[in-house]
């Protein structure tokens, strides 16, 4: 989708760091273990995005630096911004009233070449043990991770930490595949049987979700040669694919972590410790 001309965008500096040398940019998204290089017009646009800039201002900046058909230039910039957004490298920024001026130039413009990025993921192996592959299988971290399905919602309970999680839509479908001990490839088939959407986007989003579940310490990655495949139902109606995500709840932590033998009030009813009690216990 083409962003609105007044939409301000900014580099996703929570996760992305970058440096420029020789008019080329190295941008690293540490969370995902990917890095990117930009040169030419892409480097110019990226450096403008570092401090936040509107789409219209980016068009003006490009026209200031480069010669060429303006419509084609804007379409190329739109495509580049879409790619940056899909890669989570930029995010929307709030409106700004700060004055903005084009940089001073000598008036020489060079022919516009569409901005492009080079993407690398060869450092992912260094970031995590067992990087995700199609053959990767998934197992709940321990036997105290339990789940139950309620209609279109799956509730996952972490009995050790006292958390519970809500999985809906595609997230619930992914969890169902995990419980069936399917590998990544079979889970993708399961999701694609239930949802329609771009296959590459589904693969990326489900992969990120599985990484998130691992970082949440709900599952571990493994491998096995006898992982079951997924057999799609004969005539399933598909929903539009939604980005899988979970919600974590901690409001029942006190109750879920209760020791029914020792954590009792004199009257015999379960008694949850308060945070202050717990802090004091540790301090003691």
């Amino acid at each position: 989708m083409t962003p609105h001309i007044d939409q301000r965008l900014i580099v996703n500096s929570t996760y992305v760091i970058s440096e420029t040398a020789n008019d080329q940019v190295l941008a690293i998204y540490m969370e995902l273990g990917t890095y990117y290089t930009f040169d030419g017009s892409a480097a110019v646009l990226w450096n403008a995005l570092l401090n936040g800039i509107s789409v219209g201002q980016l068009y003006a900046l490009a026209a200031h630096h480069y010669s060429g058909d303006e419509v084609a230039m804007q379409q190329a910039i739109d495509a580049f911004l879409t790619r940056l957004r899909d890669e989570r490298l930029i995010v929307p920024a709030p409106p700004s009233t700060a004055p903005w001026e084009l940089p001073i130039s000598n008036g020489d413009r060079t022919p516009f070449i569409a901005p492009r990025l080079m993407r690398f993921n060869d450092i992912q192996m260094m970031l995590v043990a067992n990087p995700l592959k199609f053959e990767t299988t998934f197992t709940p971290v321990n036997a105290n991770i339990v789940s139950e399905q309620y209609g279109d919602e799956t509730v996952v309970l972490d009995m050790n930490r006292g958390y519970y999680y809500s999985f809906r839509g595609s997230a619930a479908t992914v969890w169902a595949g995990i419980i069936e001990k399917e590998n990544f490839r079979a889970i993708l088939e399961r999701v694609q049987a239930a949802f329609h959407g771009d296959a590459a986007a589904i693969q990326d989003q489900v992969g990120l979700f599985l990484e998130d579940l691992r970082k949440e310490a709900l599952i571990v990655f493994g491998s096995t040669d006898d992982s079951p495949g997924f057999t799609p139902p004969a005539a399933a109606s598909k929903q539009p694919f939604d980005t899988p995500r979970f919600e974590r709840f901690t409001d029942l932590q006190g109750m879920l972590l209760l020791d029914p033998i020792h954590d009792v009030a004199p009257q015999g009813w379960p008694l949850a410790s308060t945070s202050d009690d717990i802090s004091q216990a540790a301090a003691d």
Partner: peptide
């Protein structure tokens, strides 16, 4: 830039 791109990603990871 070539040295930066060779050194930084693997170091930072």
């Amino acid at each position: 830039f070539a040295a930066l791109a060779a050194l930084a990603p693997s170091t930072l990871a």
